[in-house]
């Protein structure tokens, strides 16, 4: 809240790195390549509409979206307004959950300067690294992604030469070379957690896709652009030890008359948060995401 987000920040922060582009055109015979280009063209078109991470908007902008739409939704948004002040949209490219989580988490650290939380998550990240190694992933396939996340983590803590401002965090979150790498980091962590606790996740995965745990990780977790479900959220929350609240905005209504908005808290299993030990009472999540079928955005409580 303390920083104004309206500062001129456009998508022009695209990777400023120069890479010698291999000459792809010299091969006349296409096929798969064609299909892939078409895919990415569609994605790019879709992406133009919204940056990876939008500006903070008052909740009224959400209501405006449904002005001529469902009365139930408008009613629910009104209820939401009692608890939440603002929304920050993310791009709907299948990575929205991870991008929302990334920004929300880093913003929380930036604002709270919670050193002990940083230490705690770093220990979890170390654990995730070991998990991947023990699952047989070659180090070089994931270490860049890990390094980049840890770098962001250090830079949101103030007082060192790498420290960044809130505006810079927004810029980075809109920079593909940062955002995609962090998303991929989360995908590795999620996949590692699911594989490590395959027996636990298996029934959920079977219920979702009728795939094996292995197949699910390979086809729905690790590839970029694959949407997240409660299985992903549970796994990420468990692996990193970060509780997540998801507020559901859909057309479902309760017959009892009063409209209410459902939410679900994903609380890390075996949570070793020092304050949570002993009492399994409320661990109140500092990350709140708004779920509308097929998409996640960030919600800001009042």
């Amino acid at each position: 809240m303390q920083n104004q987000d309206g500062v001129q920040v456009d998508g022009e922060v695209e990777s400023a790195t120069s890479v010698p582009t291999p000459e792809f055109d010299e091969w006349a015979n296409f096929g798969d390549q064609d299909i892939m280009q078409q895919h990415s063209a569609i994605r790019a078109e879709e992406a133009e509409k919204i940056p990876f991470l939008g500006d903070k908007e008052p909740l009224s902008s959400l209501a405006a979206e449904y002005q001529s739409g469902s009365a139930i939704l408008l009613e629910k948004i009104k209820v939401l307004g009692e608890q939440y002040a603002a929304i920050r949209r993310t791009r709907g490219d299948g990575n929205c959950f991870f991008r929302s989580f990334m920004f929300s988490y880093l913003e929380h650290i930036l604002e709270s300067q919670d050193q002990s939380e940083v230490d705690r998550i770093k220990a979890n990240v170390e654990q995730c690294r070991k998990t991947l190694q023990s699952l047989g992933y070659a180090d070089f396939t994931f270490e860049d992604f890990f390094a980049l996340f840890l770098e962001q983590l250090d830079s949101v803590l103030q007082g060192n030469e790498a420290s960044i401002s809130h505006d810079e965090l927004i810029l980075r979150s809109r920079d593909q070379s940062v955002s995609d790498y962090v998303v991929m980091f989360f995908r590795f962590v999620t996949s590692g957690e699911i594989r490590k606790r395959a027996e636990f996740f298996e029934p959920f995965i079977l219920g979702l896709t009728n795939a094996t745990v292995e197949q699910f990780c390979k086809s729905s977790v690790e590839p970029m652009g694959e949407e997240s479900d409660h299985v992903h959220i549970t796994a990420l929350s468990d692996a990193l030890g970060v509780p997540i609240r998801v507020v559901y905005l859909d057309r479902s209504s309760c017959d009892t008359g009063g409209v209410s908005v459902n939410h679900h808290d994903f609380v890390p299993a075996g949570s070793d948060l020092p304050n949570a030990s002993g009492c399994s009472e409320k661990v109140s999540p500092f990350i709140t995401l708004l779920y509308r079928p097929g998409h996640y955005d960030i919600l800001y409580p009042k």
């Binding site: 096929g31 798969d32 396939t141 690790e222 590839p223 970029m224």
Partner: peptide, 15 residues
């Protein structure tokens, strides 16, 4: 293309 042709049912992944 090993990732999306008949050769591979899954998408390419960075791992």
């Amino acid at each position: 293309c090993l990732s999306i042709s008949n050769h591979h049912p899954e998408h390419w992944q960075p791992s």
